[in-house]
Design a protein around this nucleic acid. Sequence first.
DNA 1: CAGAAAAGAGACAGGTCTGTCTATATGCTT
DNA 2: AAGCATATAGACAGACCTGTCTCTTTTCTG
Lengths: 200, 200
Amino acid sequence: MFTTLDNLAGPGPQPDQDARTRVLECAYRLFYRHGLRATGIDRIIAESGVAKASFYRHFPTKQALVEAYLDLRHARWMGWMESRLSAAPDARAWLAALPDALDDWFRAPGFRGCAFINGHAEAGTEAPAMTVTHKRELAARIARACAEAGLAPPDEVAADLLLATEGAIVRAQMEGADAARGPLLRAFARVLAGPERAAA
Amino acid sequence: MFTTLDNLAGPGPQPDQDARTRVLECAYRLFYRHGLRATGIDRIIAESGVAKASFYRHFPTKQALVEAYLDLRHARWMGWMESRLSAAPDARAWLAALPDALDDWFRAPGFRGCAFINGHAEAGTEAPAMTVTHKRELAARIARACAEAGLAPPDEVAADLLLATEGAIVRAQMEGADAARGPLLRAFARVLAGPERAAA
DNA sequence: CAGAAAAGAGACAGGTCTGTCTATATGCTT
DNA sequence: AAGCATATAGACAGACCTGTCTCTTTTCTG
């Protein structure tokens, strides 16, 4: 599994890979960089150096390629996050390190926001299920850490941390990593400060 | 100025309006509902009941129409927010009421997230400047309220509130208003609780 | 080695996209 | 009444879109 930010951005297609991999890596880069609708099949075929018939053998429709792209992105992103936070000695430290990890991501070259937020924004209700599933799995992972860290109720704390995470992603995308860093760190610090969280 | 949520969603084109207004109202609905790229000029022309030449007289390119749409959306959204919060007796109450106002918006029929976040997600660096400008003006408005409410430093507090706002918009878009409400209320309550905010 | 699966190259179809053009009708202003 | 801006109606161009098809070559496997 890819665990570096460079690989998160995508290694790009390489000649010695098989046709399916070349197409998928190429789509991975172009879909993230330019968006789903803005990226045409023809361009992916041209840049991946694959024949059209070969493309349609592996991906019967563009939609299938989009879904494969989001699946791959999900696997890589989660893998990167786990790897980036694997040094944390316990769940509490894991949660405390999450904002720094996100900040690294925001500063990685080619950062253009969250592929799932962007995909959902573009496709709306017709967006692949992974756009929502990714967020649910992230929420579940954070909730697990909250439970292990003794932060109760874990689902509620996780929802609070996810809200801050989403906000930071959008802020970083529109205004840059510097604009997101401070508010994100403070939001996490406040949520993790203790159970004396204000009720609605 | 339009001040209701229904009008925020758009009144739609009406026969007695002039051609430019009919086009713009139609674009307003379609761009928000289906996205920028997914909405073709031909469809806007057909649904607004305008001749193609008339369209291109008022909007030399599609990009110009997109910009006009975002300008209008900005004006209406800010107008709606001010109207919705005009009953607040002071700046403190104004800030405290913001999450409820946002929650109303999330629950309005046809809610599909923030037009500026969505537009930026779709068009990236080529997105119209208004996608970013809108957020800056909203941040400035919140910062003004923070200053009036004696929350210091106002820009920092405003950035914290904006982060929560953006996160809530995205959560509401992907998971529904119910998922966003609790975390948003708690985030605001924490930030507004006092100046003893944890440092990074 | 022989057959099958996969890949390459590219023509083609049918649709949609933005934007231009011609021709005609309507309504306002002077 | 004349002229002009604006409207309608719709053909048209040229590009791009997804997806299908044919034909040849390579590569893998039994």
